[in-house]
Design a protein around this nucleic acid. Structure first.
Lengths: 241, 241
DNA sequence: GCTATTCTTGGCCATTTAGTCAGACTTCCT
DNA sequence: AGGAAGTCTGACTAAATGGCCAAGAATAGC
């Protein structure tokens, strides 16, 4: 009955996501057949949770639905993950790990066109292969990202800042045209993830139920071309003005 | 206790959004001082709902929170909108109306560069001025869009198809380079709306709490330049390759 | 075999929340 | 003034849901 401001309910009282990923009952030894079974069950539950959280959001998802999807009794889910929030945060951890390593192709001495092209294609592939993961992340960010604030402000920012310096250097060396590197990343993320997060909209506009492999190919081609052109780059690898 | 497939709960049993927007008790006459007060109250509730739904999603939002935000007793909210879903659908209707008219600058005889530029800038401005509306829409689409399927497949698709033909003609007339018009729209939507839907991510990466007016200006400049270049257009209005 | 540890699960409970309702109150019309 | 239509609201209810528990089943180590 606390008189919180009407909307603050969205931001719950959690520390943000850190490292500890797995369940709580902490078995005596971390290796062995028991531990393997445990990891398998956790993985199964996480996979179910990814789907349910993606389709219903955090509050909309029920532990019962997750359990049903994992073909386990609800109490069993609560055995591996004490609370719904703990499960949600474990899931986010897994997803964020993926996110961080996607820009690996962007390195100091890479070719700008090749690096950006690889990045864009990796992200479109991710949208195609892990749409639920993308949606869980999108949902979290749209709702204010209270569970991942720390990750966004620290790990992600640091990683992006690093890539931004690389791009600034590329620009200074005349290897690509001057663009704001931050906004370049925002555009890449948006234009690629939209094929996961907003798939149903794209599909509807294209007059289909679901996007096909061909659609994703076209999407990758289109976004790649757009990003490269916006940086004055040619697909081959030669630099423009 | 129905044995629905684990995830189907996300798609509830609603007809999709159509036209009827307002409350139910249907006053005798649709004009007059009473009706004006009614409209004012509905507007107030819708504004509150926009914010609460944006931050918490459909399931996460509570009618109590919406009422609190509108400074009204909960029962009063239910007087104007019988159910939470009815309120949600009214809100979606308002938002979708905005969406449909944003591409008005794209007409047969407009200058491609000017038209696309205006469209991009209108959409960035929308992200800046109505971030909650954008988030409500994003949330709905991310979760499968069960409430707006009809809108997406009919009204929106028709509107987009119209704009696509225009762009195809521009391309045929050599007024811009060949790009896939559908994916061009997907990219424009994504790159502009990301500043509303994913604001907290962009802000975190930029090391701020919130995006500033300057950030939105930079965003508009960046996306405008990106889209124009990807179409082989110059900001002034002259056509390229 | 025996015991300790981990795992499994049905059943239970407290809390939250959408929606109802009866009655009070206000505004309008004649 | 008086009544009718519309508006407002506190209190209540039924359903859903996260989480707990205790007892049983399985497994590992000795």
């Amino acid at each position: 009955m606390a008189k919180n401001s009407a909307v603050s309910m969205a931001a719950s009282n959690l520390e943000s996501v850190s490292s500890s990923a797995s369940g709580q009952p902490a078995p005596r030894k971390s290796a062995g057949p028991r531990a393997a079974a445990r990891r398998a069950n956790e993985k199964r539950i996480l996979a179910a949770a990814e789907e349910v959280f993606a389709l219903a959001g955090f509050t909309g998802a029920t532990t019962a639905a997750i359990a049903r999807r994992a073909s386990l009794p609800k109490a069993n889910v609560h055995y591996y993950f004490r609370t719904k929030k703990a499960l949600y945060r474990s899931l986010l951890n897994n997803i964020l790990d993926l996110w961080l390593n996607e820009a690996d192709s962007i390195t100091e001495d890479a070719d700008p066109a090749e690096a950006l092209s690889a990045y864009v294609r990796a992200k479109v592939a991710y949208s195609q292969n892990r749409p639920f993961a993308s949606k869980v992340f999108a949902n979290e960010v749209v709702h204010g990202g209270s569970q991942i604030r720390d990750y966004l402000e620290n790990q992600l920012k640091a990683r992006v800042d690093g890539k931004v310096s690389i791009i600034r250097r590329w620009i200074a060396e005349g290897r690509m045209s001057p663009v704001d590197p931050y906004h370049l990343f925002f555009s890449i993320w948006a234009a690629t993830q939209t094929y996961a997060d907003f798939e149903c909209q794209a599909a509807a506009v294209l007059g289909k139920d679901k996007l096909t492999a061909g659609d994703y190919r076209k999407a990758a081609d289109h976004v790649e071309a757009m990003i490269l052109k916006s940086c004055g780059l040619e697909p081959g690898g030669a630099a423009g003005s």
